[in-house]
Nucleic acid binder design. Structure first.
Length: 187
DNA sequence: GTCTAGATCGCCT
DNA sequence: GGCGATCTAGACG
């Protein structure tokens, strides 16, 4: 399944799938591994798309895989991955990540060496994502989303119970060993 | 036209 | 835990 196909799904479905993915700025090689994501939909009172399309949230209604960037509190930029079919106002906010590559550059941008990307505004600051990137394509553009950790996951019956085994509510991820970040990447 | 709340962050106490 | 920074869409008059 292509990344684009994956992003056609609804935001609450796509959000957990973004965990473990890489978000990178190909202009300078900085990247993070996404660790927190939040879904926003059209019928969501907290969503910018709740009252239909406007000039600001236009990207949220764009093709799946579009980057939606907005300014928060007039100070910070926040990056979203647009999901759902074109014309549907859904997106997933990249809330936090783990620094992966170009850490020195990100440290310089953030003016510190700890907590580089543990908030949505910080993610954008570290990766130098701004309003000018709004509407760009996350699959082929300068700010790019890609599958970083090679893993598969499945749902199985829960362990150690006799009743309710038909509910396959145990979720397991299996990682490819060499796709895991090394310990030396720790922030 | 004016007011206000907001998907935040860093610094202050 | 509180607060100010600083911008914008939407609500209200």
């Amino acid at each position: 399944m292509s990344l684009r196909d994956l992003l056609v799904g609804s935001a609450p479905t796509v959000a957990p799938l973004l965990l473990g993915m890489r978000l990178e700025n190909r202009r300078d090689g900085t990247s993070i591994i996404i660790t927190e994501a939040e879904a926003y939909t059209e019928d969501d009172p907290a969503s910018h798309s709740r009252r239909g399309q406007t000039a600001r949230n236009r990207s949220m209604f764009g093709d799946p895989g579009t980057l939606y960037v907005y300014r928060s509190y007039g100070v910070h930029w926040c990056a979203n991955v647009t999901t759902g079919a074109t014309g549907v106002g859904e997106a997933v906010l990249v809330r936090a990540g783990r620094p992966e590559r170009g850490i020195e550059i990100m440290e310089k941008r953030r003016g510190r060496t700890d907590r580089l990307t543990d908030g949505p505004g910080k993610v954008c600051a570290a990766l130098a994502i701004t309003g000018t990137d709004d509407g760009s394509d996350l699959v082929a553009g300068p700010i790019r989303l890609s599958r970083a950790l090679s893993f598969s996951f499945g749902a199985t019956p829960r362990i150690g119970i006799s009743a309710g085994r038909d509910r396959r509510w145990r979720f397991v991820a299996t990682f490819d060993q060499d796709s895991l970040p090394s310990d030396t990447d720790e922030t």
